[in-house]
Design a protein around this nucleic acid. Structure first.
Lengths: 333, 333
DNA sequence: TTGAAAGCGCTACCAT
DNA sequence: ATGGTAGCGCTTTCAA
């Protein structure tokens, strides 16, 4: 029962005119008389005509397709970013090809191959944690495919990016602790090699410096090994040498909650905590967690908009956007 | 500097053979001599040949593309389902076109148009909450596009589905409450018109009946109006007429937490609670929430697999899968 | 085993 | 304003 798809030539034959005229009417391009146009459009509708994207793509060499590379979607941050992206791309008639890297470089490389094969017009990417090499991303650029980074910066490559102002976000968080008369603030660092980790650490340090407080390396904790982190944190807390904590993420902040509770400390009385990202859990844990909102929806939307601009005009210079964060004060301080 | 893309004819010319032979070698189809094949493959690689998906799609009328319709991605459940889908589609060389409905029928209809226009080979869909009409989905089926529903069933349409066994999940949850000697269990219902709402309610009722407990309509609460829900729940709790609660979702369970705390009740001593979905928050709230895990990753993966089978052979009969859920016991009972 | 050629649906160019 | 037609890159007969 498969009714054959109706093509431009079908319409042309029906109307005894040429395909070019039909094409012109359908695309509202070039000269064409109004009555003709109307006649064609009406028939097209009646016959249920749908343009064949392949034929179009073949001849125009544009795919109206954007590749999206994301580490994973289970963090609310990325889901929300996706919604921001989708809100602008769908409006512009672009489609997304989504690939997840699961933070593995191998999958990231495969994703880039997919993008190349699919001839996407542009790529939006949040690179994975451990990228020693960026050849696969360089290849995207070399193939004249527009590229915009999100959330995580990639300094080796010349491409636009939209990231959070991690430095300011961290600075303000720590500043808020200091203003509230907390004297010794620890920091739990993020994963190695990420620009975000570096920038939040810097914000922490600078904030201390500005308040004439010393930056002590014993108060800066690595988080790569969760067990070790908890041990180190426990020691710090037992020695009562800190009264507050700024964590790279809400999840790491929650780890601190657990350690604190384990040794009988109260939050925020004994330990004030501020996290980062404003994941949903920060509202649900108790006490609710003060944190830094990164505006993921806006991040996605802006990145998509920049990409579309670059696709439209490849001469568009790179843009480097740092989104202001928002300090969300709840009950953990 | 845009180096022109290399095509099959480029390779053919270079080797002074015909394009058809090159095509055969590249696709490993039909008769071709081994040395020839090797020669062609080597050169193709050297020249950086990439098949043009448009030309291929145009001639084969297959897009290797799947449309994915999802209400939204900020619930962990859907993100995880997406990861399950992606794990099988990417392996099979299919690409996903993602559209979100935001639970709005209008956007859902638009998404279906997108799928039709893009000539996707198949569609994976979780329909939105308020669908009075299903014409847009019917049109997908009429256009000979394979369709598989996930999570939410759509009885009006003849299509495969992969859903949770909501009935059993609810039944077991309530059974667990009863076994632990809770006598009066309330239920907070989900959104109207959803198959999941109906099935979980039925599981609740049947579980009570099986234990010879009466089903009391006053203990079944609507959730459409959050304020009203909290008021009603508060009344029930003040009257001390219930000792336990089974909620349609983890978020509704959390609402119950808040009401309980507000009037000074302890969980689970004064009120035992079981939620549904095993969203991340259920581990993070305190006390941690007992809930029903729906295996979203498996749901996505299975739905994708069924869809691929149907795409490969359109005569494949519809499949109706009910995934067994898993009761996750934590501290709220 | 290989080649020649038609044709998928569309646009763009040139002609009228 | 409209028509004719080549050609995008590929697969798929059919013929050799």
């Amino acid at each position: 029962m498969k009714s054959k798809r109706v093509s431009i030539t079908d319409i042309a034959k029906e109307l005894q005119i040429s395909p070019s005229t039909v094409s012109r009417a359908l695309n509202d391009t070039g000269k064409i008389s109004e009555p003709r146009k109307k006649e064609i459009l009406d028939l097209a509708k009646k016959m249920g005509y749908r343009p064949n994207p392949f034929a179009k793509g073949l001849v125009q060499n544009k795919t109206k397709t954007i590749g999206l590379l994301i580490p994973e979607f289970t963090h609310h941050f990325y889901s929300r970013m996706l919604e921001g992206i989708e809100s602008v791309t769908s409006k512009a008639g672009y489609q997304l090809i989504i690939c997840t890297s699961n933070e593995k470089q191998k999958q990231e490389i495969k994703a880039c191959q997919t993008f190349l094969n699919s001839r996407v017009d542009g790529v939006l990417a949040t690179v994975c944690k451990k990228n020693e090499k960026v050849d696969h991303l360089q290849e995207i650029i070399n193939s004249d495919i527009q590229l915009v980074f999100m959330d995580r910066q990639c300094e080796e490559l010349e491409a636009s990016h939209v990231i959070s102002n991690d430095f300011d976000g961290a600075f303000q968080a720590v500043e808020y602790l200091i203003k509230n008369r907390y004297k010794r603030t620890a920091h739990i660092k993020g994963p190695k090699n990420l620009s975000t980790t570096f920038n939040r650490l810097m914000g922490y340090k600078e904030s201390l410096k500005k308040a004439n407080l010393s930056v002590e390396s014993e108060l800066i904790l690595e988080s790569d090994d969760p067990y070790l982190l908890k041990e180190n944190l426990k020691n710090l807390l037992m020695e009562k040498s800190i009264d507050s904590l700024f964590a790279y993420s809400d999840y790491l902040a929650y780890d601190a909650y657990q350690v604190a509770f384990e040794i009988g400390l109260k939050i925020p009385q004994d330990l004030a905590i501020i996290g980062f990202a404003d994941e949903p859990i920060s509202q649900y844990i108790s006490p609710s967690l003060s944190t830094v909102n990164q505006k993921p929806f806006e991040m996605g939307a802006q990145a998509a908009q920049i990409l579309l601009n670059q696709i439209k005009n490849s001469e568009t210079p790179c843009e480097y956007i740092s989104l202001q964060t928002e300090l969300m004060i709840r009950d953990s301080i």
